[in-house]
């Protein structure tokens, strides 16, 4: 087991062969992420009202590199699903949850975060990272022919994942990206993000787990 761990660590530290960035003297100061994936809400019985246990989650972030291994930034996301609401009086009378009406449920989490990257070389193939921070979860719940409830709750989030350096796959493309757009490195990444955003005086948590994948550009 220990040997496997050591092997993984060695791979993580392995520089990308033929990577052109080693010749670049300056370091990237910013990183831009675009990502998408599935959001699994923490809310109980979600599937009963929305037909499945997850929905789409899209997000993007911009971060400043305080150090090569430490970033601080802001992330904006968008989550939407369509389902049904319920009729409380009818549910009470019938002893079961009576679904009715069409509901559009939207979340827009804004995250302010600090991210730590396990980066030991500019050419490193795999970069693990983890971070977290403050979340303001804006919501809008629109019920057809009734109007919408809007508001926000405060919370926090944490996220962790792995970034795969793409520069070495096509070094000429990587060079072009640098020369044309100033992009030092491009990564493909996967991550897990967990958000907690509970309503005041309620056990209801608007957060959940997001399994995301996307591209990271360092410039």
């Amino acid at each position: 087991m220990r040997a496997i761990i050591l092997l993984i660590a060695a791979v993580l530290l392995l520089p990308a062969a033929g990577h052109a960035a080693s010749s670049r003297l300056d370091q990237p100061n910013w990183s831009l992420e675009v990502k998408g994936g599935n959001f699994y809400p923490e809310i109980d019985n979600w599937k009963d009202f929305y037909g499945r246990d997850h929905t789409w989650h899209y997000a993007g972030s911009l971060a400043y590199k305080v150090l090569r291994q430490v970033e601080a930034g802001i992330e904006a996301g968008y989550i939407k699903d369509r389902g049904q609401g319920y009729a409380p009086l009818n549910s009470q009378a019938q002893g079961v949850t009576v679904l009715s009406g069409r509901v559009t449920y939207e979340l827009a989490p804004i995250n302010v975060f600090v991210l730590f990257r396990g980066m030991f070389s500019d050419d490193q193939w795999l970069v693990p990272y983890a971070g977290g921070g403050y979340t303001r979860m804006f919501y809008r719940e629109k019920i057809e022919s009734q109007g919408a409830a809007r508001g926000y709750v405060n919370g926090y989030h944490g996220r962790a994942g792995l970034q795969f350096l793409l520069d070495g796959i096509d070094s000429s493309a990587a060079n072009n990206l640098f020369q044309d757009y100033g992009v030092h490195h491009t990564y493909l990444f996967v991550e897990l993000e967990i958000t907690k955003a509970a309503l005041d005086n309620s056990s209801m948590d608007l957060g959940g787990k997001s399994y995301l994948a996307g591209f990271l550009f360092e410039f």
Partner: peptide, 17 residues
């Protein structure tokens, strides 16, 4: 039949309005 205001799920408050 009992017509009534439909409640969204989750039942979210319309804050500050």
């Amino acid at each position: 039949g009992l017509p009534e205001i439909i409640t969204g799920y989750p039942n979210l408050p319309n804050s500050g309005c």
